[in-house]
């Protein structure tokens, strides 16, 4: 995730993703890495602090399903049990390209949703 923002990939500026230091200014949360039961209340609270509309990307096998720690006593096997996930990015850890693709997919999803909402409001059949 850090590498995606660095010089080689320069992802943040190119695709309009701006990292924010506080959830109150964010509309996309990237759950990167294992979510443990100790971290879970914090993740929930962070999600609650984000203003609507908001989206969540689950980054990596650990966040998707628990990954190699699926049967651990302290790991939540999949963040989608708690939060609504828009895009799952596979990989352990995912390559920067995978994260980029995930964000592009999310942008497409938002565009399509907006398009279909517009169409249904004006009675246009696509």
């Amino acid at each position: 995730m850090l590498a995606a923002g660095s010089a080689t990939y320069d992802f943040n500026e190119r695709s309009g993703v701006l990292p924010r230091a506080t959830p109150k200014q964010a509309d996309l949360m990237i759950v990167a890495g294992t979510v443990t039961y100790k971290m879970l209340p914090v993740v929930k609270r962070l999600y609650g602090m984000m203003p609507e509309p908001k989206w969540v990307i689950s980054l990596g096998s650990c966040a998707n399903s628990g990954g190699p720690f699926y049967n651990s006593y302290n790991v939540l096997p999949g963040i989608d049990k708690v939060l609504p996930i828009d895009v799952y990015v596979p990989g352990c850890p995912p390559r920067p390209e995978a994260l980029m693709n995930g964000v592009v997919k999310l942008q497409e999803k938002i565009m399509n949703n907006a398009k279909s909402a517009f169409n249904s409001a004006w009675g246009i059949r696509s």
């Binding site: 039961y37 100790k38 049967n71 651990s72 006593y73 302290n74």
Partner: peptide
């Protein structure tokens, strides 16, 4: 571990989910 965790994970009688 979190404060309300029950059990002692590294004891042999503590079993994982599988």
């Amino acid at each position: 571990l979190r404060e309300d965790f029950e059990g002692f994970p590294l004891r042999k009688d503590f079993l994982l989910s599988n």
